[in-house]
Design a protein around this nucleic acid. Structure first.
Length: 568
RNA sequence: GCGCCCGUAGCUCAACCGGACAGAGCAUCGGAUUUCUAAUCCGAGGGUUGCAGGUUCGAGUCCUGCCGGGCGUACCA
């Protein structure tokens, strides 16, 4: 495809009298594929020459020699549209996809660059709720996308395992807790204690002081407090790992905030040494008023730390450990100010790597009845959502494909795929409203829709009793000149661009949207074109085409964290 | 109050550096299955892109103001 584009750029540059590079960068795939394979808008040139863009396009079209692989050059208003001879695009793309297989879509663009991604990061002792899905799934997808671009990716789960809330839990457990019930009830039991604490706090405000004191003791290393805290952490981690297994999410580092505890004093001392610390209202702060960022609290009035202190220590630690060229924080948009403050404080500390850190925000999860407060114990467990989705997938399989071997595995892939894709489908900054019907949908723009398109192609190969690997060519791609066939070829070739953009923008939805488009064309093709039982050359060419589309779908789904079963 | 984000069809959303008639899914209605899985496909209706200005050859996209919603705004994360 690149060489085809190069050929057009050369011809266009000559006809228009512009630089080759200019022509190259101006060439774009037309929005409507019926306009051709490439288009060159003449607006910029028209402006420079002070002439009408449509005239320029018309004149250039008349002047251009049109030799294969170029089939036609047409001026359409201010656009110069190019179409290749039938099969030219397929020749350039399909063979490559078949040869590269699961490497199709990967590159070495980011080779030698380490990217650390902080994502998921749930709080221990609390349920892994549906609201943790976003950071987990978006962060994991960005990690896989960057890895596909050749980056060294370090995924870090920055567990919320430190802070006043553990003081609360320690107090609650001492007052009302029971080890046996903890062993049996796990996180829901811890949640129960947490909820009770928050309820009783309303009657006895002194409890909050007690909790603060308990956290203070924890920070000072009180053995009893430590032991309880360790217990909470164990219980939580075991449950989190189970969820990550279901989602297929892996971390290179599974270290919570507490890990940075010992690194905090040095950071505070350095802030002090550089004269950045100010006492204010009994707390210790960095004043960022000059930057319009308010104040950043480093230590509370009682000298205990906050998450800012820990995040600063973590950032420095991560740079010193990984020498990252980029550090990403996949954290909700509500924390934008926190990260702006943090990056600024690091700059003030004279850490140049601050410029290579970025907050990758995403929109809030909201609920229709707006009463999903963890403090009140109203939570939707992610595991429950996943289980329901898998159960629904299982019943669909019973209905549509009763003989399916491996139905359990497929039900898991499809059910979980539906939930995961639902969160990656739209631009991450959009808020999402939790809706059972939507998250459990298997039709329309959904994960199962993509998986279905993939499975249909696998089914064709089964029917033909052909091993995809035995598809050797040469192929007569010139036979693939209907509109759907060209559209499908185009959708496959545009995948590369989608991955590149998704990586650059840290935006998995660009891939999601492209795959939806690809699957839609593929399904349309499937209805309109017979693959088997037609002229042998045509059949081979179509097999190659759908195989390429299938590989592309599978690779894209893998980047998003979805499996692509061969049958469903 | 101030700051940031969002506002596109009844609902949920697309629309790459501003560019060719703003596209999908859901829902509604009507159709397609002796042929490779109907978790699919085809068709129909449905839009003053929140409002008002501005910049530009050209604005859903950029700028200003306003309206609506959300989040944040000192000892939670």
């Amino acid at each position: 495809m690149e060489t085809l584009k190069q050929r057009v750029a050369e011809a266009a540059a000559e006809a228009l009298g512009i630089a080759l590079e200019e022509a190259r960068s101006a060439l774009e795939p037309p929005r409507d594929p019926r306009m051709g394979d490439l288009a060159l808008p003449c607006f910029a040139l028209a402006k420079r020459l002070g002439r009408n863009p449509a005239e320029i396009a018309a004149a250039a079209a008349a002047r251009m020699r049109c030799a294969p692989p170029l089939a036609s050059v047409r001026a359409a208003g201010p656009y110069l549209n190019f179409a290749f001879v039938p099969g030219a695009v397929a020749d350039a793309v399909i063979g490559r996809v078949l040869a590269e297989g699961q490497a199709f879509g990967t590159s070495r663009a980011g080779a030698g660059q380490t990217v650390v991604i902080d994502f998921s990061s749930p709080n221990i002792a609390k349920p892994f709720g549906i609201h943790h899905l976003r950071s987990t799934v978006i962060g994991a997808a960005i990690g896989r996308i960057l890895r596909a671009r050749g980056h060294d990716v370090v995924g870090i789960n920055h567990l919320g395992d430190w802070g006043t809330q553990f003081g609360q839990l320690i107090v609650a457990f001492r007052r009302w807790g029971d080890e046996e019930r903890l062993a049996a009830g796990k996180i829901p039991y811890l949640l129960e204690l947490y909820v009770r604490f928050n309820a009783e706090k309303k009657e006895q405000p002194a409890l909050q002081d007690e909790a603060r004191a308990a956290f203070r003791a924890l920070e000072l290393g009180d053995p009893q407090a430590r032991a309880l805290w360790r217990r909470f952490r164990e219980v939580s981690e075991a449950e989190f790992r189970r969820i990550y297994d279901l989602l297929g999410v892996r971390f290179e580092h599974f270290t919570g905030e507490s890990f940075y505890e010992e690194h905090m004093p040095a950071v505070v001392a350095e802030l002090e040494r550089q004269g950045l610390l100010v006492e204010s209202e009994d707390a210790t702060i960095v004043d960022l008023g000059a930057d319009g960022l308010g104040v950043s609290i480093i230590k509370k009035a009682d000298d205990s730390t906050l998450y800012m202190t820990r995040d600063l220590a973590a950032a420095i630690y991560r740079f010193e450990t990984f020498r990252f060229s980029r550090a990403l924080y996949v954290v909700g948009a509500a924390q934008t100010l926190h990260f702006k403050q943090m990056f600024r404080v690091l700059e003030l500390l004279g850490r140049p790597f601050a410029k290579h850190m970025a907050h990758v925000p995403f929109g809030l999860l909201r609920f229709r009845d707006a009463k999903m407060s963890t403090r009140e114990g109203r939570v939707i467990y992610l595991e429950e959502v996943l289980e329901r989705a898998v159960e629904l997938a299982r019943s669909k399989i019973r209905e549509k494909n009763p003989g399916l071997e491996d139905a359990d595995r497929v039900a898991r892939a499809v059910g979980i795929g539906a939930v995961v894709f639902n969160d990656l489908k739209n631009r991450r900054i959009k808020d999402v409203t939790f809706d059972w019907d939507e998250i459990l949908a298997f039709e329309g723009d959904t994960g199962p829709y993509l998986q279905y398109a993939h499975a249909r192609i696998a089914s064709v190969f089964r029917k033909a009793a052909r091993q995809p690997a035995a598809l050797l060519g040469p192929f007569r791609f010139a036979l693939l000149d209907s509109q759907v066939e060209r559209d499908l070829t185009r959708a496959v070739s545009l995948y590369l661009e989608a991955v590149a953009r998704a990586a650059a923008e840290h935006e998995p939805s660009i891939i999601s949207q492209h795959l939806l488009d690809l699957a839609a064309v593929l399904n349309r093709f499937y209805i309109e074109c017979r693959i088997l039982g037609v002229d042998p050359d045509l059949s081979e060419a179509r097999l190659a085409l759908v195989r390429a589309a299938q590989i592309t779908l599978r690779n894209g789904l893998a980047l998003l964290g979805l499996e692509a079963p061969d049958e469903m």
